[in-house]
Each structure stands twice: as structure tokens, then as C-alpha cells.
């Protein structure tokens, strides 16, 4: 049922896994859609935001 691959630990360095959880425009997909647990969603969010800061993931698709 769940099409998302959930790792044991979310890591900002594992870009391929984080990319599953962002939309084409770069937004974080909400937990009601991903269906992962609340604590996992918090960890995911934290790591996505770190990866964005380090330019591993885009903030939006509007970057020049």
C-alpha cells in the first residue's frame, strides 16, 4: 500500500530517500499523504531542511 521507502534512520546525506518525500516543486509532502508516523515525519522534516541548507535539495523549482 505504501509506496514510500522508509529507512531506519533519516539522514540528510541520503538524498535519494529524502527526494521521495518532496514534490516536484520542492515542498515537503504532508504526513497525511505519506502515511508515515508522526515522529518519523518530524525527523524527515528536520533532515530535509538541513539538506536544503546544504544545497543537496532545492528549496523550490524557481531557483535561477
Amino acid at each position: 500500500m505504501n509506496k514510500f521507502e522508509i529507512p531506519k534512520n533519516f539522514d540528510y546525506k541520503n538524498v535519494n530517500i529524502l527526494k521521495q518525500f518532496i514534490t516536484e516543486t520542492g515542498k515537503i509532502i504532508p504526513a497525511r499523504v505519506t502515511g508515515i508516523s508522526a515522529s518519523n515525519q518530524r525527523k524527515l522534516t528536520r533532515n530535509i531542511k538541513i539538506a536544503r541548507f546544504l544545497a543537496l535539495i532545492p528549496y523550490t523549482d524557481m531557483h535561477k
Binding site: 544545497a55 543537496l56 532545492p58 528549496y59 531557483h63
Partner: peptide
């Protein structure tokens, strides 16, 4: 090593 940035810094 060198890596493409997702946005220019």
C-alpha cells in the same frame, strides 16, 4: 569532492 549545488550560492 565536487558536487552540483541544487541552487547557486
Amino acid at each position: 569532492g565536487r558536487r552540483q549545488l541544487s541552487y547557486s550560492i
